[in-house]
């Protein structure tokens, strides 16, 4: 059973409450579930590489035999049929995601600093309001938000997708919880040296809580990147990639190949960013408890 030792690592006799049968059971279960989790990804990659005739072959095959990038080229042609080049959807997505993420990091981290290390009154009330708002996801508030956005003439502008993300409750929550771990002594000593709150925030706290804002970058990037914003954007030239993806996939089997190709393009950025930053994300989440 050398493989189990490989998978679970040596325990150096510390944790005695482990049986080999249990290890084997856990390992098998994990493999099965991991296969289920992977299936759509592998299927998407396979379909995206299949030429037309392989997609329509009957009985269908799971694996691709003559891989081609034709489907990726077809995305551009499909987008052109909507009179908007694919690069436009992509640049819209990038602009919206980057602006919203940057704004969220700056706004949330400054506010989190004040809430965790500041001296303003009412901090506790504000924080518990924010924690309560964690409950309402963007889907649940979409229609009331639509009413507010339309009063502000923001509907059908990128502002509708960007501005509400600046003050995301989850962003502030994670930042504030992590900042609680910065020892007050560090901040006091900087204050004695004459540094104002902003200097303390920018020079001392932000470098210390780097895992937290990197995590926020990842989470906010992922959330905004995959948002369709169907309710808020009507003009084709303002739409983002996920909206295009839905329009493609609504076309049924004839568009399986292009749809899969677009999905593959969509999934690369969030997955790559997570791989790069996984350890920091986990470190930040270690402080995510709600008491």
């Amino acid at each position: 059973m050398g493989i189990l030792k490989q998978v679970f690592g040596a325990r150096a006799g510390k944790r005695v409450s482990r049986s080999m049968g249990g290890d084997l059971g856990i390992f098998s279960l994990m493999i099965v579930v991991a296969a289920f989790m992977c299936l759509p990804f592998v299927y998407a990659i396979m379909q995206s590489l299949k030429p037309m005739e392989e997609i329509f072959i009957f009985p269908p095959r799971f694996f691709v035999r003559n891989p081609t990038f034709e489907n990726f080229r077809m995305i551009g042609r499909f987008a052109n049929s909507l009179w908007v080049p694919f690069s436009r959807y992509l640049s819209n997505s990038v602009v919206v995601t980057v602006t919203a993420t940057l704004g969220q990091i700056v706004f949330c981290s400054m506010a989190a600093f004040v809430l965790s290390k500041g001296s303003l009154r009412g901090r506790k009330v504000l924080f518990s309001t924010i924690v309560a708002m964690l409950l309402f996801s963007y889907e649940v508030t979409a229609i009331p938000l639509y009413i507010v956005l339309s009063r502000m003439n923001l509907v059908d502008t990128h502002g509708a997708l960007i501005l509400p993300m600046f003050a995301a409750p989850l962003g502030l929550f994670l930042m504030k919880q992590y900042m609680e771990t910065v020892p007050i002594a560090v901040i006091e000593s900087a204050r004695v040296d004459g540094a104002g709150p902003f200097l303390v925030y920018a020079r001392i706290v932000m470098p210390t809580v780097k895992p937290a804002w990197l995590t926020l970058v990842i989470l906010s990037f992922q959330a905004i990147w995959s948002r369709e914003g169907l309710e808020f954007i009507y003009s084709e030239q303002l739409k983002v990639v996920p909206t295009l993806l839905r329009q493609i996939s609504a076309g049924g089997i004839a568009r399986v190949g292009i749809g899969a190709a677009a999905a593959v393009i969509m999934m690369i950025p969030p997955i790559v960013t997570f791989v790069v930053s996984q350890s920091r994300v986990i470190e930040t989440m270690a402080h995510s408890g709600i008491k």
Partner: peptide, 24 residues
Amino acid sequence: GRLTEAAMIAPFLTFFLLFTILPV
């Protein structure tokens, strides 16, 4: 430093009130 603090929390607070509290 309270004024600076207020200025630092103001952007978040404004957007939070406008796009989270106000809709609810």
